[in-house]
Computed example of a mutant assay.
Amino acid sequence: MTIYSLYIYDRHCNCVYYQDWHRSKRPRTAVEGGLLPAVSAAVYPKLEDPTPDAAGSRYGTPRNTLTSATGVVVAVNEDAPRTPLPPPRANSPPVQQQQQQSQQQSQSSATLTFDEEAKLVYGVVLSLRNLVRKLSGRDEQFVNYTTSTYKLHLYETLSGYKFVILSDPKADSLRFVLRQIYAGPFIEYVVRNPLVQMDSREQGIDNEFFRLSTDRMIRGLTVFE
């Protein structure tokens, strides 16, 4: 059993955070303008050479974060470069090179861009949540569903944030894990951070401490093996 990926959506239906671990198929880079900045460096369109602003920074929004314990402003890491696909071997015959290229093109065309994938995940969650409420009343909550290849878990906060995690179909309910992420790292490094805009439609959760804390929490679970 294992955990595949984590999505966080805000009250405006925007994906504000993404992180993955054991995905066999990597999502394609989102189209320009289809994803908020700082959601994930792995899927956000890479800018070639952004123009420095008046303060000398190459980013239009602040990329610093505030530690709650010491109050020291710490700069976060830059966007990690993505490794391109390896070129075909030099000693490969022309037919084999063409087959490799065609396989790469077919895999690229078969995979959705990340912004499309995030919209589909949110659409499934919203549809099933509304269906459960209509059939069972407002006292019942949609918490997870299982397919032959994955299991989706949902935790929704009172403020409208939706935490979604995809895991192995044999995994038990991970709703308590999502609640721990919200009550722990999310409250500590996002809600209580004055540099993070909680009600903004312009940027995702740009906080390295939150990402590292979430990664450490997920890797510590027994289901992560």
Rank of each mutant, 00 (worst) to 15 (best):
T61C: 02
P62I: 11
R63Q: 01
T65Y: 03
T65L: 03
T65E: 02
L66Y: 11
S68G: 07
S68N: 11
A69Q: 04
T70A: 09
T70I: 10
G71L: 00
V72D: 04
V72I: 14
V73Y: 02
V74D: 01
A75M: 07
A75F: 04
V76D: 13
V76K: 09
E78Y: 09
D79P: 03
D79S: 03
A80P: 04
P81M: 02
P81L: 01
R82T: 02
T83E: 08
T83M: 08
P84W: 00
P84N: 01
P84F: 00
L85E: 13
P86A: 03
P87L: 01
P88T: 05
R89G: 14
A90L: 08
S92A: 15
S92C: 15
P94L: 10
P94I: 05
V95Q: 14
V95F: 11
V95R: 12
V95W: 07
Q96W: 15
Q97N: 06
Q99L: 13
Q100V: 12
Q100K: 14
Q100T: 13
S102F: 11
Q103Y: 14
Q104L: 10
Q104R: 13
Q107T: 05
Q107W: 01
S108I: 07
S108L: 12
S109G: 01
A110M: 02
T111H: 10
L112F: 06
L112N: 03
F114E: 06
D115N: 10
D115H: 07
E116W: 09
E116G: 02
E117I: 06
E117H: 14
K119M: 07
K119D: 07
L120S: 11
L120R: 10
V121W: 00
V121H: 01
V121Y: 00
Y122E: 03
Y122P: 02
Y122M: 07
V124G: 01
V125E: 01
V125L: 01
L126K: 12
S127I: 00
S127M: 01
S127H: 06
L128G: 09
L128R: 15
R129S: 15
R129C: 11
N130R: 14
V132D: 00
L135G: 02
S136E: 12
G137H: 04
D139R: 12
